[in-house]
Amino acid sequence: MSAEALAVVTAQDGDVVRLELGDVARGPWDAASAHGGAPAALLTRAVEAHAAGTDLRVSSLAFTFLGPVPLGAVEIRTTVRKSGRRLQVVHGELRAGGRTAMEVQATLLRRGRVPLPAGVGMPWPELAPPEGRAAAPAWFVVDGGRAFHPDAVEIRPLGDAPLGEPTPDGAAAWLRLRVPVVGEETPTAAQRAAAAADFGNGLSCPVPMADYVFVNCDLHVALHRDPAGEWIGLRARTELDRAGTGLTTTELHDAAGRFGTATQTLFVEARA
């Protein structure tokens, strides 16, 4: 993994952290803004700080995008809305340029040891493995500069269609972070899942990206167990309506099988 990171910490005061978001986090829609997966991973990191030294784990993450997240200086602050040994609710807010650009509400649950009947809790059917698959080339990079993909994230599609081509029946791929989320820290399982989950709508677009904008307004990630390993598998399907809205539903996998689900509500519009 490269020593370069999505962001570096410039200051921290309790539950408030200031960071500099680098150009390796750039998204596909605007050269000055981040891909949603980058700030999602940063907010996840901030939420996880409240689980340090406890038996709590991130169980769900509900992100709302209130506007573009610009590259450069950002501030994240978190607040515990409900504390407890079994369940904790944490709210996080990412601010930039004097406005709130993104929010998250996270549910953290205790790690227990619950005896289950035989056959219950077994992994779902797995995806074909990423080994031996070719990495996707650069895809929808604005101004030809560096971007979240392929510089920060490697994508290995499982189908034959090139990234960005319409896939009405859905698509699947494996993704892994090429860089740390912050500094030289090793990304956690939840950070890897959050960063990858935001690719669902782009991976399974049923219409050409060159002809349509279909930006997700939110991202909900539910993890019934922690993923293992660097690779996060996505099996996604996107449904669009002529009202200009859509929904992406994504299965999240690791080598053992499915570990969670993500959904994205989409704003859809034809390009002028």
Rank of each mutant, 00 (worst) to 15 (best):
R45Y: 06
L109R: 10
L266S: 03
A172G: 14
I76R: 09
G112V: 06
R146D: 10
F65P: 07
L61H: 00
R18S: 11
A25L: 04
V9C: 05
P117K: 13
A147S: 14
N201G: 04
A73W: 03
D151E: 14
T54W: 09
V179C: 11
E103R: 15
R146I: 07
R192S: 02
A172Q: 09
V16A: 14
T188V: 10
E20P: 03
E154W: 04
K82T: 09
T238E: 06
E184L: 13
A134Q: 07
V221M: 07
N216T: 04
F65W: 11
D23P: 15
R258I: 12
A7L: 14
E154A: 12
D254S: 06
G37K: 01
Q105H: 15
R99C: 08
L219I: 15
G67V: 15
V179Q: 11
P227Y: 00
D23V: 14
D160S: 14
V182H: 06
W174V: 02
V89K: 00
V141W: 00
A190W: 03
A118R: 14
T249C: 03
T167S: 15
A195I: 02
T44D: 03
H50E: 12
T100W: 05
A197M: 15
A196W: 01
A5P: 14
H91L: 13
R99N: 04
Q12N: 12
I155V: 13
S33V: 10
A256F: 01
V80N: 06
V69Q: 07
G37V: 04
G145N: 08
T248H: 01
V80S: 14
A197Q: 11
T167R: 11
L43I: 15
E4N: 08
P180F: 10
G183E: 13
Q264H: 09
R133T: 12
A46P: 04
L127D: 10
A106S: 12
G233T: 08
A173M: 07
P70N: 15
D198G: 05
V215P: 10
L116K: 07
A52D: 14
L234H: 00
R237P: 08
L175M: 15
G92W: 05
G244E: 09
P168H: 11
V181G: 00
G200K: 00
A62E: 15
V74D: 02
R86T: 14
E126W: 10
R178P: 00
R237N: 06
P70A: 03
G97A: 00
R111N: 07
L240K: 03
P70F: 04
D143C: 08
S204F: 10
F214Y: 10
W29M: 09
P130R: 01
G164P: 00
G159D: 00
P206D: 08
A40N: 10
P180N: 13
V47G: 04
A189E: 03
G119Y: 04
G27I: 01
R86Y: 07
P187I: 02
H253A: 12
E165I: 02
D241Q: 10
P187Q: 09
A138Q: 03
V90K: 01
G200R: 01
E184P: 12
R225A: 09
A34V: 06
A40D: 11
P123F: 03
A190C: 05
L175H: 08
G36C: 05
F259R: 01
G119N: 12
A161S: 13
G257P: 05
L56S: 06
D254G: 09
D241K: 13
